[in-house]
Nucleic acid binder design. Structure first.
Lengths: 336, 336
DNA sequence: CTGTTAGCGCGTTCAC
DNA sequence: GTGAACGCGCTAACAG
């Protein structure tokens, strides 16, 4: 840090008091005369003294800082989630570090490893590396740094999780489509292996079973993080398999589908219906208005942060897993 | 922080070496035997030793942390900007703290004051409190903590700024509308006093002068941070003054205008044209597609972060003020 | 190349 | 109610 102008010793000298007395003035135990305390505080303000946070951290083994690690930030879902987290942290007098992995497992590992040293008291994470080794997470336990997952989780790691019931929402959305003559329906995912993609896929598959509709494997479509590439894949799917409906597992793929349909002059919802997981506040302003499965993103973040602070405060955890409800909102894009 | 299992002393004992030798193994000066270094690193890994970051911070007066302070996070512009900042920070081996003020001046002051103590080496901020006292910013200088403004700035504070030419883009957009028989045109702002709102208003006013169109003061409309309230205000403006065009100074007000027009069955662009400052990636998917003035949000963040790191590295600053260009994209909502 | 020593700034004993 | 002294964990001098 850039050196603050004055430290406790200098302030003590200026006040003709001991450093311990000065220190006491900044803590809130009644072990100091009210007058001297005020005297000290006034002088401190005058001289611009602020206790060095890192010395305190070292002394107390407390950093009052948490970390949020997520695959991306610049999207409606994650920025809302972080907003919720930051708000709770601020309310608890904590600071919030953010780390974006760009969906890269290796980056996630590096970031977490950089946190073993105690920089933060706790971590809230939405994961990037399902299908990879997760042992590095366990070292966190050794360092006594609590971890809470939200939305995208590792099922094989036993930490508190805050999620929405992706299986259920996907199942319901798919069932709705199948029951309304939208066979075949295509599922667009980013990564089948990620917990989210996985649950949403299972719901999709099981809805087919329930509706006794045979599923064409080619209609579970792995897209890309790259928009251009995804559009190509979607276009190919649309032209080749002519699905009557699309279920997009992330917002980006829903809007990409719109773009493709616009380009290819495929009419929504007449020729293809579209519904997608999305936190777009203006879904109703799209052309046509987009049907959405909307997760309570901010609440997810809030809840995850609250869980983390419960742990930090040694409160007994009521639930290891919090499942919030997603809302399915049918708009014009799935109108029959 | 939660105590890491083992400290340097214990590791040194386990290795039968001195702490300074151990310390050297973790730094990258060539002042240690390669073999002993490897020996130490191996043992460290085995025992799960990680240098305590706060002890290092204290020792070196370096935190390798920066702060981002902004009015809001959950919107396209700011989340993109933060993405850019975080990326640069990560590339420099720095950590990024984020703070959201909810556009509250008082919160901004509290947050900044909480940073005087040297928690961070530098601050990147988009401000919330134009029209208030900014003296508290100057204390940062006393603490030698560099500050860079982006997008929303205090003109009376002399620190590096990364902005777009809001006056220019607003002028051009307004001029376009006035030259195409869209008189009167309404300007929607959140806060006339904020630098952004101010520059965008000046451009708006001056375009009227240039086009020799008399400006109705009632058509510079102060909206709210609350969506519902803003819609009411916009509706009132639309019904009372019947503007032929709307220039929305922030994305939220553009989409709110769409919502009002949808509700009131006012046709865009036939009855009213709409253009807005926006980073919506799907502006072209709206009904009708939205004309936008788009700022290079991520680049703004990137540039601000680069400037800050230049300062931290004592590089000479080439420019006190970086002005990036916004792009005006006309779509259907301003079609004549 | 390695060990010894002396703080970084603060907060908490324990005396007085 | 206040001060002296120690140590949190680490690293930079300095010596050897």
């Amino acid at each position: 840090m850039s050196k603050s102008f004055i430290n406790i010793k200098e302030l003590a000298v200026a006040l003709n008091l001991s450093t311990s007395t000065v220190s006491r003035a900044f803590r809130d135990k009644g072990d100091i005369n009210a007058d001297t305390k005020q005297y000290i505080l006034d002088k401190a303000k005058e001289l611009g003294y602020y206790p060095n946070i890192y010395a305190s951290n070292l002394r107390d083994s407390k950093s009052r800082t948490i970390a949020v690690i997520m695959p991306e930030l610049a999207n409606n879902f994650f920025s809302l989630a972080v907003k919720g987290i930051e708000r709770v942290a601020q309310a608890n007098g904590y600071h919030t570090l953010i780390y974006v992995t760009d969906s890269l497992y290796q980056k996630e590992v590096e970031i977490v490893e950089d946190l073993y040293n105690g920089r933060v008291e706790g971590i809230i994470m939405s994961v990037s590396g399902e299908g990879n080794d997760h042992q590095y997470i366990n070292k966190l336990k050794q360092s006594h740094i609590p971890l809470v997952f939200f939305d995208r989780v590792y099922d094989d790691i036993d930490v508190p999780k805050v999620i929405t019931d992706d299986y259920d929402s996907s199942f319901k959305a798919t069932e709705y489509l199948l029951n309304n003559h939208c066979d075949p329906v295509a599922l667009l995912v980013i990564d089948k292996n990620v917990s989210i993609g996985n649950a949403r896929m299972k719901g999709f598959v099981d809805a087919h079973k329930k509706c006794k509709v045979k599923l064409n494997e080619n209609l579970v479509v792995d897209c890309s993080n790259d928009l251009e590439e995804s559009c190509q894949i979607i276009k190919h799917t649309l032209l080749t398999y002519k699905p009557k409906a699309i279920l997009a597992s992330v917002e980006r793929l829903a809007t990409a589908s719109y773009t493709v349909c616009l380009d290819e002059k495929i009419k929504i919802p007449e020729e293809v219906k579209i519904i997608g997981y999305s936190n777009l506040s203006i879904a109703s302003l799209l052309n046509p208005s987009l049907s959405t499965i909307t997760q309570p993103a901010e609440e997810l973040g809030t809840k995850a942060a609250e869980l983390l602070f419960d742990i930090l405060k040694d409160k007994p955890l009521l639930q290891k897993e919090v499942v919030l409800e997603a809302e399915i909102i049918h708009r014009v894009s799935t109108t029959l």
